[in-house]
Amino acid sequence: MTTVHIPFLQTGSLAVGGRLLSADERSVQSHSDRPSSLTKGHRACQGCAEALAARWVMDTAVDAAGGRLVVANATGCLEVFSTLYPESAWKPPWIHSLFANAAAVATGIASSLRAQGRDDVRVLAQGGDGGTVDIGLAAVSGMFERNDDVLYVCYDNQGYMNTGVQRSSATPASARTATTPAVGSTPGQAFGQGKSMVRIAMAHEVPYVASATPADLRDLEAKVRTAMSIHGARYLHVLVPCPVGWGSEPSQSIALARSAVQSGIFPVLEARAGELTDVQRIRERCDVTEYLRPQARFAHLFRPGGEDALDRWRALAEANIRRYDLLGGA
Protein backbone atom coordinates (compact mmCIF):
# COMPACT_ATOMS: atom_id res chain seq x y z
CA MET A 1 0.00 0.00 0.00
CA THR A 2 1.36 3.41 -0.91
CA THR A 3 1.34 6.20 1.57
CA VAL A 4 0.78 9.77 0.48
CA HIS A 5 1.95 12.48 2.86
CA ILE A 6 -0.46 15.38 2.80
CA PRO A 7 0.85 18.53 4.52
CA PHE A 8 -1.38 19.56 7.46
CA LEU A 9 -1.58 22.94 5.86
CA GLN A 10 -4.01 21.58 3.26
CA THR A 11 -6.27 19.62 5.54
CA GLY A 12 -7.95 22.36 7.53
CA SER A 13 -6.57 20.67 10.59
CA LEU A 14 -6.17 21.86 14.15
CA ALA A 15 -2.60 22.81 13.43
CA VAL A 16 -3.17 25.80 11.20
CA GLY A 17 -6.25 27.14 12.88
CA GLY A 18 -8.80 25.72 10.50
CA ARG A 19 -8.52 27.96 7.49
CA LEU A 20 -10.63 25.56 5.43
CA LEU A 21 -13.42 25.63 7.97
CA SER A 22 -16.30 28.03 7.67
CA ALA A 23 -15.34 31.51 8.89
CA ASP A 24 -17.18 31.32 12.22
CA GLU A 25 -15.47 28.07 13.15
CA ARG A 26 -11.94 29.23 12.48
CA SER A 27 -9.43 30.09 15.13
CA VAL A 28 -8.56 33.70 15.88
CA GLN A 29 -5.09 33.05 14.53
CA SER A 30 -6.43 31.95 11.15
CA HIS A 31 -7.87 35.39 10.48
CA SER A 32 -5.78 37.91 8.59
CA ASP A 33 -7.10 40.64 10.89
CA ARG A 34 -6.12 38.84 14.10
CA PRO A 35 -5.22 41.35 16.84
CA SER A 36 -1.48 40.49 16.84
CA SER A 37 -1.37 41.74 20.44
CA LEU A 38 2.29 40.80 20.62
CA THR A 39 3.39 42.17 17.33
CA LYS A 40 6.48 41.60 15.24
CA GLY A 41 9.87 43.06 16.05
CA HIS A 42 10.27 41.64 19.54
CA ARG A 43 13.48 39.96 20.60
CA ALA A 44 12.37 36.46 21.59
CA CYS A 45 14.69 33.55 20.76
CA GLN A 46 14.09 31.28 17.80
CA GLY A 47 11.49 28.68 18.62
CA CYS A 48 10.26 30.48 21.74
CA ALA A 49 6.96 28.84 22.58
CA GLU A 50 6.25 31.52 25.19
CA ALA A 51 6.12 34.23 22.52
CA LEU A 52 3.84 32.08 20.42
CA ALA A 53 1.56 31.12 23.27
CA ALA A 54 1.40 34.67 24.61
CA ARG A 55 0.28 36.00 21.23
CA TRP A 56 -2.34 33.29 20.87
CA VAL A 57 -3.62 33.75 24.41
CA MET A 58 -3.76 37.53 24.20
CA ASP A 59 -5.23 37.63 20.72
CA THR A 60 -8.04 35.38 21.88
CA ALA A 61 -8.53 37.38 25.06
CA VAL A 62 -8.56 40.67 23.13
CA ASP A 63 -11.05 39.16 20.69
CA ALA A 64 -13.24 37.86 23.52
CA ALA A 65 -13.10 41.24 25.27
CA GLY A 66 -14.09 43.13 22.15
CA GLY A 67 -10.68 44.78 22.08
CA ARG A 68 -11.03 46.07 25.63
CA LEU A 69 -8.22 44.29 27.50
CA VAL A 70 -5.58 45.63 29.91
CA VAL A 71 -2.52 43.51 30.66
CA ALA A 72 -0.16 43.33 33.66
CA ASN A 73 3.08 41.46 33.02
CA ALA A 74 5.58 40.06 35.49
CA THR A 75 9.30 40.53 34.97
CA GLY A 76 10.75 37.74 32.86
CA CYS A 77 11.66 36.78 29.31
CA LEU A 78 8.27 37.84 27.96
CA GLU A 79 8.68 41.34 29.40
CA VAL A 80 12.33 41.75 28.51
CA PHE A 81 12.10 40.65 24.89
CA SER A 82 9.00 42.73 24.20
CA THR A 83 9.66 46.14 25.76
CA LEU A 84 13.20 47.41 25.49
CA TYR A 85 12.78 51.20 25.60
CA PRO A 86 11.89 52.99 23.38
CA GLU A 87 10.14 50.09 21.67
CA SER A 88 7.15 48.03 22.66
CA ALA A 89 5.76 44.98 20.92
CA TRP A 90 2.42 45.19 22.78
CA LYS A 91 -0.71 46.53 21.19
CA PRO A 92 -3.07 46.47 24.20
CA PRO A 93 -2.48 48.79 27.16
CA TRP A 94 0.22 46.96 29.06
CA ILE A 95 2.11 47.49 32.30
CA HIS A 96 5.15 45.85 33.77
CA SER A 97 5.89 46.61 37.42
CA LEU A 98 7.94 43.91 39.17
CA PHE A 99 8.78 40.22 39.15
CA ALA A 100 6.55 39.12 42.01
CA ASN A 101 3.55 41.42 41.74
CA ALA A 102 1.78 40.96 38.38
CA ALA A 103 -1.27 39.42 40.09
CA ALA A 104 -1.48 42.28 42.61
CA VAL A 105 -1.00 44.95 39.94
CA ALA A 106 -3.82 43.28 37.99
CA THR A 107 -5.97 43.38 41.12
CA GLY A 108 -5.24 47.09 41.37
CA ILE A 109 -6.27 47.64 37.74
CA ALA A 110 -9.44 45.58 38.20
CA SER A 111 -10.27 47.48 41.41
CA SER A 112 -9.72 50.80 39.69
CA LEU A 113 -11.95 49.83 36.78
CA ARG A 114 -14.64 48.73 39.24
CA ALA A 115 -14.39 51.99 41.12
CA GLN A 116 -14.74 53.82 37.79
CA GLY A 117 -17.74 51.70 36.85
CA ARG A 118 -15.90 50.32 33.82
CA ASP A 119 -17.32 46.79 33.60
CA ASP A 120 -16.57 46.71 29.85
CA VAL A 121 -12.77 46.44 30.25
CA ARG A 122 -11.18 43.11 31.16
CA VAL A 123 -7.88 42.42 32.94
CA LEU A 124 -5.25 39.79 32.17
CA ALA A 125 -2.07 39.14 34.14
CA GLN A 126 0.76 37.01 32.90
CA GLY A 127 4.13 35.77 33.98
CA GLY A 128 6.52 32.90 33.73
CA ASP A 129 6.80 30.02 36.17
CA GLY A 130 9.32 31.92 38.33
CA GLY A 131 7.01 34.93 38.66
CA THR A 132 4.02 32.69 39.30
CA VAL A 133 4.99 29.49 41.07
CA ASP A 134 7.94 30.85 43.07
CA ILE A 135 8.39 34.53 43.88
CA GLY A 136 4.90 35.68 42.90
CA LEU A 137 2.92 32.86 44.50
CA ALA A 138 1.71 34.91 47.48
CA ALA A 139 0.29 37.61 45.22
CA VAL A 140 -1.29 35.04 42.91
CA SER A 141 -2.79 33.22 45.89
CA GLY A 142 -4.12 36.49 47.30
CA MET A 143 -5.72 37.37 43.97
CA PHE A 144 -7.26 33.87 43.81
CA GLU A 145 -8.72 33.84 47.32
CA ARG A 146 -10.24 37.31 46.92
CA ASN A 147 -11.69 36.08 43.61
CA ASP A 148 -10.55 39.27 41.89
CA ASP A 149 -11.74 39.63 38.32
CA VAL A 150 -8.44 38.73 36.67
CA LEU A 151 -7.37 36.02 34.22
CA TYR A 152 -3.87 34.99 35.26
CA VAL A 153 -1.81 33.14 32.66
CA CYS A 154 1.39 31.33 33.57
CA TYR A 155 3.73 30.50 30.69
CA ASP A 156 5.65 27.64 32.21
CA ASN A 157 9.04 27.01 30.63
CA GLN A 158 10.15 25.22 33.77
CA GLY A 159 12.95 27.45 34.96
CA TYR A 160 14.53 30.88 35.22
CA MET A 161 15.42 31.17 31.55
CA ASN A 162 15.69 34.97 31.59
CA THR A 163 18.59 34.86 34.02
CA GLY A 164 20.38 31.97 32.34
CA VAL A 165 18.44 28.76 33.05
CA GLN A 166 18.34 28.27 36.80
CA ARG A 167 16.08 25.90 38.67
CA SER A 168 12.58 26.97 39.71
CA SER A 169 10.00 25.01 41.66
CA ALA A 170 8.47 24.21 38.26
CA THR A 171 11.69 22.58 36.99
CA PRO A 172 11.01 18.89 36.40
CA ALA A 173 12.86 16.14 38.21
CA SER A 174 16.32 15.26 36.88
CA ALA A 175 16.47 18.34 34.61
CA ARG A 176 19.86 19.94 34.33
CA THR A 177 19.89 23.66 35.02
CA ALA A 178 22.62 26.12 35.93
CA THR A 179 21.84 25.56 39.61
CA THR A 180 21.01 21.84 39.41
CA PRO A 181 23.97 20.62 37.37
CA ALA A 182 24.08 17.11 35.93
CA VAL A 183 26.91 16.00 38.16
CA GLY A 184 27.16 13.68 41.14
CA SER A 185 25.09 10.67 42.08
CA THR A 186 21.71 12.39 41.63
CA PRO A 187 22.22 14.61 38.58
CA GLY A 188 19.89 17.49 37.85
CA GLN A 189 16.82 18.59 39.77
CA ALA A 190 15.97 16.23 42.63
CA PHE A 191 13.02 13.87 42.37
CA GLY A 192 10.23 14.59 44.82
CA GLN A 193 10.52 18.38 44.68
CA GLY A 194 8.41 20.94 42.86
CA LYS A 195 4.73 21.76 42.99
CA SER A 196 1.68 21.61 40.79
CA MET A 197 0.44 25.16 40.28
CA VAL A 198 -2.70 23.83 38.59
CA ARG A 199 -3.63 21.88 41.71
CA ILE A 200 -2.72 24.83 43.92
CA ALA A 201 -5.07 26.99 41.84
CA MET A 202 -7.79 24.34 42.06
CA ALA A 203 -7.39 24.24 45.84
CA HIS A 204 -8.40 27.94 45.88
CA GLU A 205 -11.69 26.86 44.27
CA VAL A 206 -11.52 29.72 41.79
CA PRO A 207 -14.22 29.67 39.10
CA TYR A 208 -11.96 28.36 36.34
CA VAL A 209 -8.60 26.62 36.07
CA ALA A 210 -7.17 25.10 32.91
CA SER A 211 -3.92 23.85 31.44
CA ALA A 212 -2.95 23.91 27.78
CA THR A 213 -0.03 23.87 25.37
CA PRO A 214 0.77 25.58 22.08
CA ALA A 215 0.65 22.13 20.47
CA ASP A 216 -3.12 22.49 20.36
CA LEU A 217 -4.12 25.94 19.18
CA ARG A 218 -7.85 25.22 19.11
CA ASP A 219 -7.81 23.91 22.66
CA LEU A 220 -5.74 26.86 23.89
CA GLU A 221 -8.05 29.36 22.24
CA ALA A 222 -11.15 27.58 23.53
CA LYS A 223 -9.81 27.71 27.08
CA VAL A 224 -8.99 31.40 26.89
CA ARG A 225 -12.44 32.04 25.45
CA THR A 226 -14.07 30.03 28.24
CA ALA A 227 -11.98 31.85 30.83
CA MET A 228 -12.98 35.21 29.37
CA SER A 229 -16.66 34.26 29.52
CA ILE A 230 -16.36 33.98 33.31
CA HIS A 231 -15.80 36.69 35.92
CA GLY A 232 -13.68 36.28 39.02
CA ALA A 233 -10.21 34.80 39.43
CA ARG A 234 -9.23 32.45 36.61
CA TYR A 235 -6.00 30.58 35.99
CA LEU A 236 -4.49 29.21 32.80
CA HIS A 237 -1.25 27.23 32.91
CA VAL A 238 0.47 26.92 29.53
CA LEU A 239 3.48 24.67 29.01
CA VAL A 240 5.94 26.54 26.77
CA PRO A 241 9.06 24.69 25.60
CA CYS A 242 12.21 26.82 25.67
CA PRO A 243 14.93 25.80 23.18
CA VAL A 244 17.63 27.64 25.13
CA GLY A 245 16.71 26.33 28.57
CA TRP A 246 15.71 22.86 27.47
CA GLY A 247 18.55 22.35 25.02
CA SER A 248 16.21 21.49 22.17
CA GLU A 249 15.99 22.41 18.53
CA PRO A 250 13.96 25.58 17.90
CA SER A 251 11.97 23.62 15.32
CA GLN A 252 10.93 21.07 17.98
CA SER A 253 9.07 23.34 20.44
CA ILE A 254 5.59 22.37 19.28
CA ALA A 255 6.54 18.70 18.99
CA LEU A 256 7.89 18.73 22.55
CA ALA A 257 4.72 20.34 23.86
CA ARG A 258 2.78 17.59 22.10
CA SER A 259 4.90 14.72 23.42
CA ALA A 260 4.66 16.15 26.93
CA VAL A 261 0.90 15.72 26.64
CA GLN A 262 0.88 12.43 24.77
CA SER A 263 3.34 10.80 27.18
CA GLY A 264 1.15 11.71 30.17
CA ILE A 265 3.71 14.09 31.63
CA PHE A 266 1.64 17.26 31.16
CA PRO A 267 -2.08 16.72 31.77
CA VAL A 268 -4.33 19.07 29.81
CA LEU A 269 -7.45 19.70 31.82
CA GLU A 270 -10.17 22.05 32.98
CA ALA A 271 -11.55 22.57 36.47
CA ARG A 272 -14.37 24.69 37.80
CA ALA A 273 -14.66 25.75 41.42
CA GLY A 274 -12.02 23.24 42.39
CA GLU A 275 -13.68 20.29 40.63
CA LEU A 276 -12.05 18.64 37.64
CA THR A 277 -14.53 19.02 34.74
CA ASP A 278 -12.66 17.96 31.62
CA VAL A 279 -9.49 16.12 30.70
CA GLN A 280 -7.93 15.86 27.27
CA ARG A 281 -7.36 12.15 26.63
CA ILE A 282 -4.09 10.96 25.24
CA ARG A 283 -4.72 10.47 21.51
CA GLU A 284 -1.60 8.61 20.56
CA ARG A 285 0.38 7.54 23.57
CA CYS A 286 4.16 7.86 23.42
CA ASP A 287 6.91 6.85 25.79
CA VAL A 288 8.47 9.50 28.04
CA THR A 289 11.72 9.12 26.12
CA GLU A 290 10.07 10.72 23.09
CA TYR A 291 9.62 13.82 25.22
CA LEU A 292 12.92 13.61 27.10
CA ARG A 293 15.46 12.54 24.49
CA PRO A 294 15.36 15.69 22.29
CA GLN A 295 16.19 17.82 25.33
CA ALA A 296 19.85 18.26 26.26
CA ARG A 297 18.83 19.04 29.86
CA PHE A 298 17.95 15.34 30.16
CA ALA A 299 20.96 14.02 28.21
CA HIS A 300 22.40 12.36 31.32
CA LEU A 301 19.32 10.10 31.52
CA PHE A 302 20.41 8.47 28.29
CA ARG A 303 23.88 7.63 29.48
CA PRO A 304 24.73 4.50 31.43
CA GLY A 305 23.12 4.73 34.86
CA GLY A 306 20.20 6.82 33.63
CA GLU A 307 17.74 3.93 33.50
CA ASP A 308 16.54 4.36 37.07
CA ALA A 309 15.63 7.93 36.39
CA LEU A 310 13.79 6.98 33.19
CA ASP A 311 11.79 4.45 35.18
CA ARG A 312 10.87 7.16 37.66
CA TRP A 313 9.75 9.35 34.74
CA ARG A 314 7.55 6.51 33.50
CA ALA A 315 6.12 6.21 36.99
CA LEU A 316 5.32 9.94 36.98
CA ALA A 317 3.50 9.55 33.66
CA GLU A 318 1.60 6.53 34.99
CA ALA A 319 0.59 8.48 38.10
CA ASN A 320 -0.79 11.30 35.96
CA ILE A 321 -2.60 8.84 33.70
CA ARG A 322 -4.23 7.24 36.75
CA ARG A 323 -5.03 10.50 38.55
CA TYR A 324 -6.63 12.15 35.53
CA ASP A 325 -7.74 9.06 33.61
CA LEU A 326 -5.76 10.27 30.63
CA LEU A 327 -6.34 7.10 28.63
CA GLY A 328 -10.08 7.12 29.29
CA GLY A 329 -12.36 4.27 30.18
CA ALA A 330 -11.68 4.30 33.91
Partner: peptide, 18 residues
Protein backbone atom coordinates in the same frame (compact mmCIF):
# COMPACT_ATOMS: atom_id res chain seq x y z
CA UNK B 1 -2.02 39.54 51.71
CA UNK B 2 1.12 41.63 52.29
CA UNK B 3 2.49 45.15 52.16
CA UNK B 4 4.25 44.20 48.95
CA UNK B 5 0.88 43.50 47.40
CA UNK B 6 -0.62 46.61 49.02
CA UNK B 7 1.81 48.81 47.12
CA UNK B 8 1.45 46.66 43.99
CA UNK B 9 -2.34 47.01 44.03
CA UNK B 10 -1.85 50.75 44.47
CA UNK B 11 0.48 50.74 41.46
CA UNK B 12 -2.08 48.97 39.28
CA UNK B 13 -4.89 51.20 40.49
CA UNK B 14 -2.93 54.39 39.95
CA UNK B 15 -1.84 53.29 36.48
CA UNK B 16 -5.46 52.49 35.64
CA UNK B 17 -6.46 56.04 36.54
CA UNK B 18 -7.54 55.94 40.19
Amino acid sequence: ESEFSAMSVAIGASAAGS
